[in-house]
């Protein structure tokens, strides 16, 4: 489903190059649950942005469902983001002036869905995350955990194949964080590919597939609980990890 080949991303800060990612390669199979771990500044958020087509690499190739993303135009990337990928951000990123229901509806507005269908789908997504009774509340009337669950509802309302979560528990207390993670894992068991970026080792150890970054390189790409899906992916990922460590 996802294949990265020697992806590099360099930013220029004050005229000096900062290598956020250096020749990163790995694969993620359909339906996998992956955590990307690393210390602050290791490049994990940059990697997630590239996976989510929010950013483009300076070098290397990114294949999504066999299609190279690098060659896509802005409009195509927008369509990929709208239909294939769901995002959950650490800071929730809900639109403050809209209610929970309207926030969840937003991706469907983009898709041009008819009002009734939008309402029904958004309501169902809110039910999935256990917030049906908070549909008419605005973000500032919701707790942190509730906001994140609204963000999750928004990310799944279009039934994307991949769900990308950037430190989804970063702004939550541990109990609420666990509830949110449980919810994401439940979505993964229903077939959605789940990629979580985190620096929390406890959270990282929950996933069957772990990719560890350091200084923009993949230093570990393993299946600590044993390979449960996509054997080919496991082997290739192992090889890539070795290459990256040796690099």
């Amino acid at each position: 489903m996802i294949r990265l080949e020697n992806i590099s991303r360099t930013f220029f800060v004050g005229g000096r190059p900062v290598h956020a990612l250096r020749k990163v390669s790995f694969s993620i199979a359909e339906g996998e649950y992956v955590t990307i771990m690393g210390a602050s500044g290791s490049g994990k958020s940059t990697l997630l942005n590239i996976l989510g087509c929010l950013d483009r690499p300076n070098a290397g190739r990114y294949f999504l469902d066999g299609r190279e993303v690098g060659g896509m135009k802005d409009e195509e990337l927008a369509a990929v983001r709208g239909h294939k990928i769901g995002f959950v951000f650490q800071a929730f990123h809900l639109v403050p002036r809209l209610t929970a229901l309207e926030n969840v509806e937003l991706p469907m507005v983009f898709a041009g869905a008819e009002r009734g269908a939008r309402r029904r789908a958004a309501q169902k997504a809110l039910e999935t995350v256990g917030l049906a009774d908070r549909a008419e509340h605005r973000p500032n009337q919701l707790s942190g955990g509730e906001r994140q669950r609204v963000a999750i509802a928004r990310s799944i309302v279009m039934k994307p194949a991949i769900l990308l979560a950037d430190e989804p528990t970063g702004n939550l207390d541990s109990r609420t964080g666990l509830e949110v993670i449980a919810l994401l894992e439940k979505l993964n068991t229903s077939g959605m590919t789940l990629v979580i970026v985190t620096h929390d080792p406890k959270l990282g150890s929950r996933a069957p597939h772990l990719i560890r970054l350091s200084d923009g390189r993949v230093i570990e790409d393993v299946f600590p609980k044993g390979a449960v899906t996509a054997k080919r992916s496991i082997n290739r990922a192992g090889e890539r990890a070795d290459e990256n460590v040796a690099d």
């Binding site: 989510g52 929010l54 802005d74 409009e75 927008a78 369509a79 983001r81 709208g82 239909h83 995002f87 990123h93 809900l94 639109v95 403050p96 937003l106 991706p107 983009f110 898709a111 928004r154 279009m158």
Partner: peptide
């Protein structure tokens, strides 16, 4: 700032620059 963030959110969930 709010507007910029809102536009970024909209782009993240699928709206194109043109829209």
């Amino acid at each position: 700032r709010n507007r910029r963030r809102e536009l970024a959110i909209l782009r993240a969930i699928g709206f194109s620059r043109f829209e």
